[in-house]
Design a protein around this nucleic acid. Structure first.
Lengths: 224, 224
DNA sequence: CCGGGGAGACAGACCGGTCTTCCTCCCTGT
DNA sequence: ACAGGGAGGAAGACCGGTCTGTCTCCCCGG
């Protein structure tokens, strides 16, 4: 058996995930769940549909996942690994030569993602709003969003930016806002966010001399 | 029909836990719906609960609202009026002296809203993600978000900013992003967004002196 | 023999929505 | 002045459907 790359973002040629390729039921269930949860949210997909589309018996489902929520938890973990890390962070790192370029490349990746017609919106934001911040699944989503913010903060530190935490939190506002706007139909949201992201970088750049003053400085800084 | 100023003396014997002040059932239902939908989203609140908490009969409910969706539609309209317009736009206009101050005051209002412990998150974003962009209620949410963006654009024009449409779309990315971050627990999200909003204003300010030119973003490494 | 897996009936709760029953107010015709 | 009737509201049974989760039955391979 070929080891098979794990379906990064699309892969599956056409329709919903098929049992093909995954021998054991657990992988089949998780693959189907990934597909359906990503596209329609966790509340909209019932256990019966998951079971039907993964060609598995109900008892088998509940033997591997004691509850639907535990499957959702596994799905979120998978989403973090395949989407946040592999599709976003790793991709962005690969594209830029300098640390700053790598940061800005995040919005290039997001922009391409927004253009895709199977763009589903952000899973973690979706689940967070669906379940609420106090629900365990909402909390898990918050945690994964914080994990993503940690990646941004690391990249900011690599770029030598000041106040990496403040930077990453502001950066994430831009990411979240652009994702919501893209869900609402603004396909240029990534470009707009990227423009603001540039200004954010400028204001967190430790300049050798000038720029001691706070609020806004010139904008046409060279850089780049 | 048109009479309305009648006081129900000793009528309506069952006045259990219904919202005080609202005599007619339609207002009671809408008031309860506003409360529950705002706090928990529309999917989480069923018609039975609405009926029970507004002290109304089921037939009465369906006489005034032919379906749950039509009530949600009425709720969204109410939300636009009470929240978007009265709580945000009017408040922000009242606070600032100059057009630019009025724009920035939006994030002051948002910041205070985030601090409230009954902060519920943004209704329109919530409904949009709950129902999806293609559902009529999701579409309505998109429309109301566009209406809010129109207010921002108007304020931008009053401030004499260039590219008011581009400005308003970028501005809304900051608003949406800060609301999601606030839902996730970042109570400083409004402050951070406001900082970026200040830079956005600068870059849309048509300064007679320097900075004319096409400005461009001049920072990103993309432009694909 | 035994355990995992497929198929599916079933339970119990809840969903949006319809309809029936009764009661009370208010308008109107004589 | 007063009886009658229509309208609106309260209470709630009911319907078909969906939800998560349990349990039974049978098969098949090691």
């Amino acid at each position: 058996m070929s080891t098979e790359a794990k379906v990064p973002l699309s892969s599956t040629p056409s329709e919903v995930a098929a049992p093909e390729g995954h021998a054991n039921p657990e992988e089949r269930i998780l693959a189907v769940a990934y597909e359906l949860f990503s596209r329609r949210g966790v509340r909209d997909v019932g256990v019966n549909e998951l079971i039907e589309r993964s060609g598995v018996a109900k008892a088998t489902f509940y033997r591997h996942f004691p509850s639907k929520d535990s499957l959702v938890l596994a799905f979120l973990e998978q989403r973090d690994k395949l989407w946040t890390v592999e599709a976003i962070v790793t991709q962005a790192r690969r594209r830029g030569k300098t640390p700053v370029e790598r940061l800005l490349a995040i919005f290039d990746v997001l922009g391409e993602w927004f253009q895709r017609e199977d763009f589903e919106g952000s899973t973690f934001i979706h689940v967070l709003l669906e379940m609420g911040p106090s629900h365990p699944l909402g909390q898990a989503s918050i945690d994964y969003l914080a994990k993503l913010r940690g990646h941004v903060q690391t990249m900011a530190e690599e770029a030598g930016l000041v106040s990496p935490d403040e930077f990453a939190r502001s950066w994430q506002i831009l990411m979240k806002g652009s994702m919501i706007s893209a869900t609402g139909g603004d396909l240029q949201a990534a470009r707009r966010a990227q423009r603001m992201a540039g200004w954010l970088i400028e204001h967190h750049t430790a300049s050798p001399e000038v720029r001691g003053a706070d609020s806004n400085a010139g904008v046409a800084a060279s850089d780049k």
